[in-house]
Design a protein around this nucleic acid. Structure first.
Lengths: 197, 197
DNA sequence: GTCTATAGAAAGATAGAC
DNA sequence: GTCTATCTTTCTATAGAC
């Protein structure tokens, strides 16, 4: 790969990363191409030499946001599977997830946004979702079709999504903490009996 | 109330109900005022004699959508509390919820949409959310701050929201069914021991 | 490949007749 | 209160210079 194509790749990557941050924070219609290009220190005219459309960038931004928010934070080191999962849940259902400078999880922050988009965008969202489900299922030692795997994932995404829409800081925090605690109990019930009461 | 003001109220109500259906289906930016007024068999010019802005209508539409989707479907009749809750969960996490002609639940379908809106809109969303939490908590015989109440609510909303964004019909169905089953187990664990494995 | 400039369309909001 | 007509802004996408 020559210098010029390498340079182009870097520029393109910078655009996608800015888009990942802006889209997850403000949604598809809340961000203009101009705003994204300015954040990447470019002008809007050059956009279409990198991407076919705003939707095409959106689809890539979803994948990149998931990588920056989820994959980059998968616990590393000498932890057991259940410890990794415990950390993942707590880290996800965390108040700072709502105000982070880094891209937030597109699964929670772009849910209803993606639902109105084309197949390319929905496909990117679905791919990210399935990847998270497989990762969680491996840590739980269960099938990706397992009820606990799928309901835990839905609770995590739903908890963050709802908290992010609420007006009331106290309620926001209560939702996140309740989901975290119930998630932890669900995880530990892999090995022990689980009695919610 | 005279005939003319009554007529105005009816017209206004028709606009809000059309808006509730269209907004939950296509999101805030996916629907124009013109489209809403046409659905209500009016022209766009008259809009601002009923509402101060598109956002003001959006806030009202969220409340109305919740009434049409949730309150109207609260189980009636000689059911025990846990039977009512069981029906509510199954009815909510239902495939037809995704393609209904009636307004869908704004908590699930407008999550990330609402997150980018002003205080008026977020306040309406928060009010609807709290009302659902209180209703569920009463049926569970628990405090509205209870972990099971809040996590069940998050799982329901998250399950429907994610399913609605997925590209893949089979996965959509798997998510809904898994959340329904886990919800039922969570409910029945009020009286009995709960062992997920 | 990136820039400036602009075409073209869409939509929120307003004015004024009836 | 509802209509037609229009103002104004915003944004996607394109054209052409460098």
């Amino acid at each position: 790969m020559g210098w010029s194509t390498d340079k182009k790749h870097q520029t393109r990557q910078r655009i996608v990363e800015c888009a990942a941050r802006l889209f997850t924070a403000k949604g598809f219609d809340g961000v203009s191409i101009d705003e994204i290009m300015q954040a990447a220190q470019l002008t809007r005219g050059g956009f279409y030499s990198h991407f076919a459309s705003k939707e095409a960038l959106y689809a890539e931004a979803i994948t990149t946001a998931a990588r920056l928010r989820l994959s980059a934070r998968f616990p590393q080191g000498d932890f057991s599977d259940s410890e990794c999962l415990s950390q993942l849940v707590t880290n996800y259902l965390c108040e700072s997830h709502l105000h982070d400078e880094q891209p937030s999880c597109p699964l929670a922050f772009l849910t209803s946004d993606v639902a109105h988009q084309n197949d390319e965008v929905r496909g990117a969202y679905t791919k990210v979702y399935k990847k998270l489900v497989i990762y969680i299922s491996q840590l739980m030692g269960e099938s990706p079709n397992n009820d606990k795997v799928l309901s835990l994932t839905a609770m995590m995404i739903g908890g963050v999504a709802v908290a992010n829409s609420l007006n009331d800081e106290r309620t926001r925090l209560k939702v996140l903490q309740a989901c975290d605690r119930m998630g932890q109990r669900l995880i530990s019930s892999n090995n022990n009996e689980f009695s919610p009461d």
